[in-house]
């Protein structure tokens, strides 16, 4: 029916905008986001699922964009680091990462932000142990992690406070 090199029409709904692209079946979601949508905030650190730098939200849950094909994400809501703040002020997670020095080189940062965003949106009251277990999914080579944990906890507090006021 199709040749492996035939490009398939795919619509990626990223950060509320539709990107109509044509990709080979073998193109990863990460490559499609980066190369076809121009959203290079999603980083590739290993392309085999271990580092988590490519973590994005698909249907609201964090997944590895290197282990998903672009065609599999057709039509499903995707969120990347570029959509976290939009044009406005920083997202509480981004603010907290800055305040707590939760990043150095910044390469793993988008993956950690999206992992944390996905988790906090689903489980705003997550306990420390469960949070640490989830954050152990991604690798960081600069910070030694402790400021990342501090930042995510601080952001969780801020988000809850804001929700309480709202």
């Amino acid at each position: 029916m199709t040749s492996p090199h035939d490009k398939l029409a795919v619509t990626l709904a990223v950060n509320g905008r539709d990107y109509r692209i044509a990709v080979e079946p073998r193109r990863s979601l990460a490559d499609a986001l980066r190369e076809d949508c121009g959203l290079t905030g999603t980083h590739l650190g290993c392309e085999h699922g271990y580092c988590g730098a490519c973590t994005v939200l698909v249907d609201g849950v964090p997944v590895r964009a290197c282990l998903m094909l672009a065609v599999q994400a057709h039509g499903r809501p995707i969120r990347t680091v570029e959509g976290l703040a939009g044009d406005g002020p920083l997202h509480p997670l981004q603010e907290a990462f800055r305040d707590e020095h939760g990043l150095q080189c910044g390469f793993c940062t988008p993956g950690f932000l999206m992992l944390a965003a996905g988790v906090l949106e689903r489980e705003p009251d997550i306990g420390d142990e469960a949070l640490r277990e989830i954050l152990s999914a991604n690798l960081c080579r600069c910070t030694g992690y402790q400021n990342i944990v501090k930042a995510v906890r601080a952001a969780a507090r801020r988000i809850k406070e804001a929700a309480g006021r709202g």
Binding site: T2, P4, H5, D6, L8, P25, R26, E47, L69, V71
Partner: peptide, 11 residues
């Protein structure tokens, strides 16, 4: 580290 080509079928 990209996959070899394949055709894709999604029944």
């Amino acid at each position: 580290m990209k996959p070899a080509p394949f055709s894709y079928h999604a029944p």
